[in-house]
Each structure stands twice: as structure tokens, then as C-alpha cells.
Design a protein around this nucleic acid. Structure first.
Length: 588
RNA sequence: GGUUCCGUAGCUCAACCGGAUAGAGCACCUGCCUUCUAAGCAGGGGGUUGUAGGUUCAAGUCCUACCGGAAUCACCA
């Protein structure tokens, strides 16, 4: 595996800095921001103070050291002391062919391989998936793919919300509707039917109903709380209902996530760790980490250095129920014992920052799990055009399935508008529309910086021009078409000789794949990879416009060179898109 | 009110330990399909990076204050 062009230049410049008795780290080469030079070194500016010389003088000395270096075509001083670097043609060529021979097109495994648990999706039983779930799902999915691609071992877990008050709501609301069901009879403890008493639509209806009532009626709320506590206490009829609810929900969720192309290794939920809670709480008590406060059992997690007051973590509520934080702690214990990960990532919106801060501190304090191994991969909320949380006109949230079908329809009509895919049969057209619609949605979500809120705009999610998923698919499909045509003409892949500006730019972009991957991993930020694949597609489009591959007046070796460059680009595009969870059709 | 995050072109967003003239897309204007997919390419206009200070050779980026928005502030998840 050849070194990246940036690494090669970096090596030379650092040697030059060292030779001048300047700190090696100042010789760092970065991608250039100005002018024609693809790379630059800004170290001369920073070195000025140490060396007590002007930045331009230092830059001049460095450039002198670099003179005659066969890997460097030019090193020139710009502005107050920037060193602009252009790699030699043979470096570009060698790297291009090295990348072409690399199965992973230059991507390398991470230096330090770890075991990760990625906790994302996190839908609640009974609540249908809405657009708010989109971000956790696509970001989490992209991160699990990225981490695996980088060589890490990953276990993803949907972490279903199936244990809290919402279950009490569902049980009590169902009881109001169908009081005669045997599940509500305390005297019956087994022999429940295998058929669920509810459908997913029932659940979706019952929950908001109960939640709404409980908000206005304290007595109604109390019944839900009591039912929750009884469920957690092991009341048989309620447990049987819970199992039905979970089963019905998982079936519906598998459809939703399947449509999104998002998969989980584990479909565990909060209820699964219930048996761990009792002993865990007992141990916390014995170890002296807990105290009673206002009737609840708590763990104090505030620290001297805090600016803000962090409330204590509530382990057991006054009503005797385990809460969100309790099951999260038990889940950590479960994962530690069954998976033993180095790091657990929680892909959850930033509204829950303080909750996770409490849980992580408690986990660290009690020795359950090292604090550093717990990371909240927070993301911003999806807002409407008014800057508030996204709502449809009716006031509810938009269902994810509605969003998917709208994107699908938009893609289908775009296909017929453009007169594309005329020769496809109905099945292939539908499949292409599905891929295009999904690519549009995923890319428009993933390209945003994870941590900021963004404005939900259906038009943006169903737009196919410019910086969009479909643009990336389009670039891929054009290459596939090119390769098919080349195959028919008997043109074969050959040695890459990047001559034109468009070819050089394309090689430089291809060269930066591994950096984008490494950075996206380090920051847990998929948008960095989005940026890379978009740059790649752009560089290819320019190459495609500027450099005919199969035209009859092109020399055979140039054809083969350009074809190989296109083929390499395709492989890297597919790899990059794959990590973003985006599939590529054969044609569109 | 306390705390955290955010404020960049008309709109939606980038900007890699602080680096040159702050970049893309959409929208708008001008070119380019008798040869590889025009969902494309080339070019143009569009900015006091919320405001005021400070640190630095250098600030969208770091510090302080203020303005505006969002989230959150113990028994929901």
C-alpha cells in the first residue's frame, strides 16, 4: 500500500524543518486553500517567533532545502510565509496506480482496533417512527458501517423503549377500552393466548390518547404509574401484555427499518435488563453509592468543579419504579458482561445531554464502566421552517413511512419527466426510484454537521440536483455505463497517467479518502465522508466533461488510463456511499 | 433565572490542532447535448461571519459582555 501524497510531502517538509532546527511538527503539510497548489505548509509563520526570523525568511530556507527534491514539482512562498507545494507528476501517477490496485481504494484500517457497541434508533414501543427518528437511524447506521469498515468490531443495538411509563399508559388505556380481557384479572397468572389483543395501529392510537389524558388528569396519571410499577413488579397479566406489545412493535419496526436499509445486531430493549436491576441496585446500596432523598433512591453525581448544578440520578422513584437512568445503567452492565466493549456510543439527540452525563458519571463512580468509554453522540433536532421542532400542518409529527413514500414518488416522477429509464421494466423503475429517493433522504440528513439543528424541508429531501444523494448516484451510474460500453468495445483498464488538470484533481481527491474516513471516525461525524464523496463526484463530473474516454480519436493507452481512473473512482464512490448506507443502482 | 449548544450569501449548509482573497448547493443571469447518461459541465452577480471589545504576526474559529434562537433544569422516555 503506497503512502498518500500528503504523507509523502509531509515527510519531506518535516525533514526540511528538522534540518533547520525547527520543531518537526511545524512542518505539517495540509490541503491548500488558495491558488493552484494542492498542498501547503503554514509552519514558517508559527516558527517565526521561535527562530526570531521573519516568516518569509524561514519559508525561503525551507524552500531551499526542498529544491531539487524529485517528489516536489514546485515549492513557492506565498503571502506572509505560506509554502505552497505541488507534487511531482510521478508521485501523482504512482499514487493513482497504487490506489487502483488497492481493493479498498486507499482506505486503511484504524491504528487501534476497538470493540464498540453502537446504541441508536431507540424507538419506543407503540410510537410509530417519525422524522425525528431519521437522524438517529441514519447517523447511527452510518457510524456502525464506518467503524466496521475501519476494522473495528461493532455490535449495534436498537435499544427499544419498552419499559417505562408508556407501558403503563398502554396497559391502562387498553383496560379502559377492553376491561374484560383476561390480562387484567389478577387471579389469572398464565394460559394467555398467543395471539396479541392489539395491532400496531391500536398501539399507535392508545398511547397518545393515554398520554394526553394523563397530562390533564392527575388521577389518570397515577393509574399509569401504578400499572408501570406493577408491571415492573412482575404482575403476570401485564407481563404477558408487554410481550405482545413488544412483539407487535418489533414486527412493525423491522418493516420501517428495513425500508430505510438500517439493520441492528441486537433488538434488545429496556425490559430485557429488568432482572439485572434488583441486584445492581442492591450492590450500589451496599457499596454506599446511594442515598434516600424525598422518598426516592438516588446517586449523587455532582462534582466540585461543576458550574451547573447537576441533579442526582434517580435510581428508584418514590413509587418504587425503575426509571430511564436505571435501565440505562443496567444496560451498561449487561453490555459489559455479555459483550465487553471498549466504547459504547449513544446516538441520541442533544436534548438528553444531562441525562447521559448523569448516567455516565454514575457508571464511572460506581465502577460499572469507565466514564471515558461512554460517549454521547449527540445530534440536533429536526426543526420546521419556523425553527421549532418539526410538525406537520395537522400539528403531529410526520411519519417516517410517509416521508419515504413521498421521496419515492418524487423520484419516480423525476424519472419519467427526464425521460430516463424508458427501457426499464416497471419493476426496475420502481427499484431505481426507491434507491434514488432513499439516497436523497439519507444524504440530505447526513451531510449536515451532526451536532447542529437543521430545518426540515421536504423539497430538500426530494431534490435531485446539486449536492444531493441522486447526484452521487448519477456519477456512479455514468461510470457503470462507461464500463459496460468499454467492455463491448474491448477497451481494457491500463496504467493511469494523469495528464490534464481534471485528471490530476480527480487523483488528488481519490488520494484523500483515507483521511476523510479517519477524520469521520475520530469525530464520529459522517458529514465529513459526505463531503468527500461529493467532492469525488464533482471531480469526476469535471473529468467526464473534459476527458473523453472512449471517443475514436483517443489513443488506446489514454483510453485505458482514463478508463482505469473512472473504474477506481467508481469503486471508491461505492465504498463511500456504502458507508453512508446508500445503495447504487446499475443505471438510472 | 442557571447551564449547554447555536447565530456565516436571499434560502439551506461547509470551512480539517487559529492561517492567504470565508467555500458549496438551491434560487437568479449567460454559455455548452449530430460522439461515453444535461439528475451534468463552464462562467457571472450575491458577505462588515449577530453586535461591541480583547488575545495574536494572523480570528468565522480562542476569551469577555451584550442581542437573538434552541435545548435542559430530580421522580416521563
Amino acid at each position: 500500500m503506497s503512502s498518500s501524497i500528503l504523507q509523502i510531502l509531509n515527510g519531506h517538509v518535516q525533514v526540511a524543518f528538522e534540518a533547520l532546527d525547527l520543531p518537526v511538527e511545524l512542518g505539517r503539510v495540509v490541503v491548500g486553500s488558495k491558488g493552484d497548489a494542492p498542498f501547503q505548509c503554514n509552519g514558517a509563520l508559527a516558527a517565526a517567533k521561535i527562530a526570531k526570523k521573519s516568516p518569509r525568511d524561514i519559508a525561503a530556507s525551507v524552500v531551499e532545502k526542498l529544491a531539487g527534491n524529485p517528489d516536489i514539482e514546485s515549492a513557492e512562498i506565498g503571502g506572509p510565509g505560506f509554502i505552497n507545494l505541488v507534487p511531482a507528476a510521478h508521485v501523482l501517477k504512482a499514487r493513482a496506480n497504487g490506489l487502483a490496485q488497492s481493493e479498498m481504494t486507499g482506505a486503511r484500517p484504524a491504528d487501534k482496533i476497538q470493540k464498540f457497541v453502537v446504541d441508536f434508533g431507540g424507538p419506543n414501543v407503540a410510537k410509530p417512527m417519525h422524522v425525528g427518528h431519521l437522524r438517529s437511524s441514519v447517523i447511527g447506521d452510518s457510524l456502525q458501517r464506518l467503524l466496521r469498515f475501519r476494522g473495528h468490531s461493532v455490535v449495534s443495538d436498537i435499544h427499544l423503549g419498552d419499559w417505562g411509563l408508556q407501558m403503563g399508559h398502554l396497559i391502562t388505556e387498553l383496560q379502559e377500552e377492553q376491561p374484560d380481557l383476561m390480562y387484567f384479572d389478577k387471579d389469572i397468572v398464565d394460559g394467555y393466548p398467543a395471539e396479541p389483543p392489539v395491532t400496531i395501529d391500536d398501539l399507535a392510537r392508545l398511547y397518545p390518547l393515554a398520554s394526553g389524558k394523563a397530562k390533564e388528569d392527575a388521577e389518570r396519571m397515577q393509574r399509569s404509574r401504578t400499572a408501570t410499577a406493577e408491571l415492573q413488579g412482575g404482575r403476570a397479566g401485564y407481563r404477558a401484555l408487554l410481550d405482545h406489545f413488544i412483539k407487535v412493535s418489533i414486527a412493525a419496526l423491522k418493516t420501517d427499518f428495513g425500508a430505510l436499509g438500517v439493520y441492528f445486531d441486537l433488538w434488545k430493549g429496556e425490559a430485557a435488563v429488568d432482572p439485572l436491576i434488583g441486584p445492581m441496585v442492591e450492590k450500589f446500596k451496599q457499596d454506599g453509592f446511594t442515598e434516600e432523598s424525598e422518598g426516592a433512591l438516588i446517586i449523587r453525581v455532582d462534582e466540585e468543579t461543576d458550574k451547573k448544578e447537576l441533579p442526582p440520578l434517580i435510581l428508584i422513584s418514590r413509587a418504587g419504579a425503575a426509571l430511564y437512568a436505571t435501565t440505562d445503567l443496567a444496560t451498561i452492565q449487561d453490555r459489559r458482561d455479555s459483550i465487553n466493549p471498549d466504547t459504547i456510543l449513544y446516538v441520541v439527540d442533544f436534548g438528553q445531554s444531562s441525562h447521559f452525563e448523569q448516567v455516565y458519571r454514575a457508571a464511572g463512580k460506581t465502577g460499572l464502566f469507565p466514564r471515558e468509554g461512554l460517549e454521547h453522540i449527540k445530534f440536533g433536532t429536526v426543526n420546521g421552517k419556523d425553527g421549532k421542532r418539526f410538525r406537520t400542518r395537522a400539528g403531529g409529527v410526520m411519519r417516517l413511512s410517509d416521508l419515504l413514500s413521498q421521496a419515492n414518488e418524487a423520484a419516480a416522477s423525476r424519472l419519467s419527466e427526464a425521460g430516463l429509464a424508458k427501457d426499464m421494466d416497471a419493476e426496475e423503475r420502481a427499484e431505481v426510484a426507491r434507491m434514488v429517493g432513499l439516497a436523497a433522504i439519507k444524504f440530505s440528513d447526513l451531510q449536515n454537521v451532526r451536532t447542529t439543528n437543521y430545518i426540515f424541508d421536504l423539497e430538500r429531501f426530494t431534490s435531485f440536483e446539486g449536492k444531493t444523494g441522486p447526484y452521487l448516484l448519477y456519477a456512479s451510474v455514468r461510470i457503470k455505463s462507461l464500463l459496460r460500453k468499454a467492455d463491448n468495445l474491448g477497451v481494457e483498464l491500463g496504467e493511469i497517467c494523469p495528464d490534464s488538470e481534471a485528471e490530476k484533481k480527480l487523483v488528488l481527491t481519490l488520494d484523500s479518502f483515507n483521511r476523510a474516513l479517519a477524520q469521520a471516525e475520530a469525530k464520529r461525524m459522517p458529514h465529513i465522508l459526505c463531503e468527500h464523496v461529493y467532492n469525488l463526484a464533482q471531480a469526476f463530473s469535471k473529468f467526464y466533461a473534459d476527458c473523453p474516454v472512449l471517443a475514436s480519436d483517443i489513443a488506446d493507452d489514454v483510453k485505458s488510463s482514463r478508463l482505469a481512473l473512472a473504474e477506481l473512482t467508481l469503486r471508491q464512490l461505492i465504498l463511500g456511499l456504502g458507508i453512508l448506507g446508500i445503495e447504487t443502482p446499475e443505471r438510472m
